[in-house]
Write a protein that binds this DNA or RNA. Structure first.
Lengths: 147, 147
DNA sequence: TTCATAATTGACACCATTTGACACTATTTG
DNA sequence: CAAATAGTGTCAAATGGTGTCAATTATGAA
């Protein structure tokens, strides 16, 4: 099984994010480690199991020098931090990442198969709104998919 | 382990930049010296452990005479200054370098494996904004990397 | 539905790190 | 030389992070 589900969770007063039990179960069973590598992604954050992150890291480091490699290093690889779940199932995310995503109290955690996304409630509403508009404008595509 | 992480730090009223404890730990453990050679880099600054800087220096000095060697000497080697961390973990960066990077109060320090980048908050936002656009426009490339 | 159990959240004490401040010294400038 | 500016050392306050406990909320079984 892969990560799935959308969860409204909260951040405690020291910046720790609760990770839903179902996601922690998946981490433990499929990846043997209750920890996540968290990094920037658009106006929010993404998180990967550490073993998966290693692969991504290796792929980026193997890229030929150039602006694309630079961009991945600066925006994704460098800011990444491995965060372990504590006894309450919370992870401490670095302040610079919380600032980037505008996280303060109400947070949305989304299981997206191979990865996990983390958004502020506001940013989440904004992006789901935009995504919805995209789908509305493509009725044919939606029908083709079977929706 | 290599340098990593993105940190929002501040400059004191005499121009000293706080270096995050995790970066100082890495300097101490892997390089045996809590000091950094800082120099110009694009619209910001880069810093290397002194031992690493020696190697770079030697490489540049070994270049055949020509505009490229001149440029490296003028823009990178010459302005470089070794800065040691003081008791509070701050480094004093020369004024000419601070001016070059437009550093005044809010600064971003980024661990980038072998090197450390230092940007003003504004310059950093500009750079990451541009980089993010580059990544967004190449969804296929990002997917191929495993993101 | 009701109870038992698990999950999530809020809170606090403690420790580490970062920051602002100030006095003092050195260096530069007129 | 004297004044202004820049840099150094140090202290103490403020902020941020960790571990832990307990209250609250959600979930599932009888």
């Amino acid at each position: 099984m892969k990560f799935s589900g959308e969860f409204n969770v909260s951040i405690d007063l020291k910046g720790r994010i609760s990770i839903p039990a179902s996601i922690r179960d998946e981490l433990r069973q499929a990846y043997r480690k209750e920890s996540l590598v968290v990094t920037r992604y658009k106006q929010g954050l993404v998180a990967y199991p550490p073993s998966r992150w290693e692969e991504i890291c290796a792929n980026v480091l193997a890229m030929p020098p150039g602006p694309n490699r630079e961009a991945n290093l600066r925006n994704r690889i460098a800011p990444a931090k491995e965060c372990s779940c504590n006894a309450q199932g919370r992870i401490q995310v670095p302040q610079s990442l919380r600032d980037h995503a505008g996280l303060d109290k109400d947070v949305v955690v989304i299981g997206m198969f191979e990865k996990i996304e983390i958004w502020s409630r506001q940013a989440h509403q904004r992006i789901t709104g935009e995504s919805e508009a995209l789908l509305d404008d493509d009725a044919q595509g939606q029908a083709d998919l079977g929706f």
